[in-house]
């Protein structure tokens, strides 16, 4: 009895180790992106866009405040109806950047990035993507989500450490315990 018990324990441990090693590998294969919705490439483009909408200076910009995390989280939450817009829009933005300046958006210098975004804002960005989704409409969507992520509540993934509130000189919300119950997560 004792022996079998030991074997059983060893077998169990072995299986457990295999499972522990294999687990993450399987997970990695299933989703190669660390994001919830965005692909690695999309996140890189989006981060560059957010970084021009609210650039870093003496205070952190949108990427440093976790705005990409905010948008990615909301794209699987309240803003899930905008998933396709982001999928098409970010691809279209990279195409527009390539058409105008020969490189993907994230690889352009800031000045040329701003020029691409200005063309988006004027609805004059080149590319087939904008037939379905007007460039201006996608740009407005990203501007509004970036503002939400940067100036909104840290509880939603953006405004990390309340950086924007610190920048504006308004202290962060005092925690009174009840703030931790998140009713938006259903």
């Amino acid at each position: 009895m004792k022996k079998t018990g030991k074997v059983r324990r060893r077998r169990f441990l072995k299986a457990a180790v295999v499972a522990a090693v294999a687990g993450p590998t399987i997970a990695c294969q299933r989703a190669s992106s660390p994001w919830r919705f965005l692909t690695v490439e999309e996140a890189r483009t989006l981060e560059a866009v957010c970084g021009r909408i609210i650039p870093a200076d003496q205070d952190p910009g949108a990427p440093g405040a976790g705005v990409v995390d905010f948008i990615d989280r909301q794209l699987t939450g309240f803003h899930r109806r905008h998933q396709q817009s982001y999928r098409d829009g970010l691809a279209g933005l990279d195409q527009a950047a390539t058409a105008l300046h020969g490189k993907r958006f994230a690889d352009l210098p800031a000045k040329q990035q701003d020029a691409v975004l200005a063309a988006m804002e004027k609805n004059q960005a080149p590319g087939a993507a904008w037939k379905q989704l007007p460039a201006r409409q996608f740009f407005d969507l990203v501007v509004s989500h970036t503002m939400q992520g940067y100036y909104g509540d840290p509880r939603h993934g953006g405004n990390r450490d309340a950086v924007s509130w610190t920048m504006l000189g308004v202290p962060a919300s005092p925690i009174r315990g009840r703030a931790k119950y998140d009713l938006t997560k259903t």
Binding site: I53, I54, D59, D114, L117, W165, M167, L168, V170
Partner: peptide
């Protein structure tokens, strides 16, 4: 609140970029 102030700006003022951030600050 800070997020509500995002839309507050004089006509024609920048709504994004360094200028908008500076306006907020």
């Amino acid at each position: 609140l800070p997020y509500q102030f995002v839309a507050v700006r004089p006509p024609g003022a920048a709504r994004w970029g360094a200028a908008h951030k500076e306006f907020m600050r």
